[in-house]
Simulated assay, not measured.
Amino acid sequence: MPSREQFHTELDELNEDIVTLAKHTEKGLRNAVDALFKQDIELARKVIQDDKLIDKQEAAINDKTILLIAKQQPVATDLRRLIIALRVVTDIERMGDNAKNIAKAAIRLGNHNVLSVPPELQTMRDMTLSMLETSMEAFRGEDILIAQKLSEMDDRVDKLYKHIVSELLTKTATNPDQIQYVMQIAFSARYIERFADHITNIGESILFLVKGEIVDLND
């Protein structure tokens, strides 16, 4: 197989590894929020344990990318693809950390909490997972039109985040004894919002890959 064809085969495999890693973070966020709603401590612990696997996979992808750079010595767009792969996988790993932090919040609240979690938090989670799916579609196809959709999607997540925090502050004012509950839910909403921000970073990386321009999708 010619060297260049081999390079693109390995690059395709690398990209699939990245998409698979994104699927693991999707599962992590989904399970972490479910653990919060269901007061499922075991599920929360599983999210934390699974995050260690995400960290190992990130390291493996980074090693594979660096080896590919050293072995093939790519230039121009091909080199940019590999640099972007390193950036994207870093954002995905940090998304996993945010899911892990939500799981930790579920553990802190325990399984005897009589207060219900705001349903908007689940809506926010689902909106963010839709963003992740969109980002991976854009990543696979190097599609800037799809990547640009992430900006508007992130705005909706941000708006819902502000609404949730506002409602929680109102609850604190009328029920100061619920401060621990309010803090952990507010933190969890913030972690989802940060998860979404990392997805917009992926969109920005795709735009830079294709256009060679730095675009702020969080603006």
Rank of each mutant, 00 (worst) to 15 (best):
M1G: 11
S3P: 11
E5L: 12
E5H: 13
H8K: 15
H8N: 14
D12F: 10
L14D: 07
L14N: 08
L14E: 09
N15A: 09
N15K: 12
L21M: 15
H24E: 07
H24R: 12
T25P: 04
E26R: 14
E26V: 12
E26N: 12
G28H: 03
L29Y: 05
R30V: 12
R30P: 05
R30G: 12
D34I: 14
F37H: 04
F37Y: 08
K38R: 00
D40H: 03
L43K: 04
L43S: 03
L43V: 05
R45Q: 13
I48G: 06
Q49V: 12
D50L: 09
D51H: 07
Q57T: 10
A59H: 07
A59I: 12
I61A: 00
N62E: 14
I69K: 05
I69C: 02
A70M: 07
K71I: 09
Q72R: 14
Q72A: 15
Q73S: 00
T77S: 07
D78I: 15
L79A: 03
R80N: 01
R80I: 13
L82P: 02
L82K: 07
I84Q: 06
L86H: 11
V89F: 03
V89C: 06
G96E: 04
A99N: 01
N101C: 02
I102C: 05
I102V: 03
A105Q: 01
A106D: 01
A106T: 12
I107D: 02
R108D: 09
L109P: 04
G110P: 03
H112W: 11
V117P: 00
P118W: 11
P118L: 00
P119H: 11
T123S: 13
M124V: 06
M124C: 01
R125V: 07
M127N: 09
S130Y: 07
M131T: 10
T134H: 03
G141A: 15
G141C: 08
E142W: 03
I144D: 04
L145N: 10
I146D: 01
A147I: 03
Q148G: 05
S151R: 15
D154V: 12
K159R: 14
L160P: 02
S166I: 14
L169E: 13
K171L: 08
K171S: 09
K171T: 15
T172A: 01
A173W: 11
T174Y: 08
N175Y: 05
P176H: 15
D177L: 15
Q178R: 10
I179D: 00
V182Q: 03
V182C: 04
Q184C: 10
I185K: 00
S188N: 03
I192K: 03
I192P: 00
E193T: 11
F195S: 01
A196S: 10
D197H: 13
H198W: 07
H198C: 05
I202F: 00
E204Q: 06
S205L: 02
L207T: 08
L207M: 14
F208R: 02
E213N: 02
E213L: 12
V215H: 01
L217Y: 00
N218Q: 05
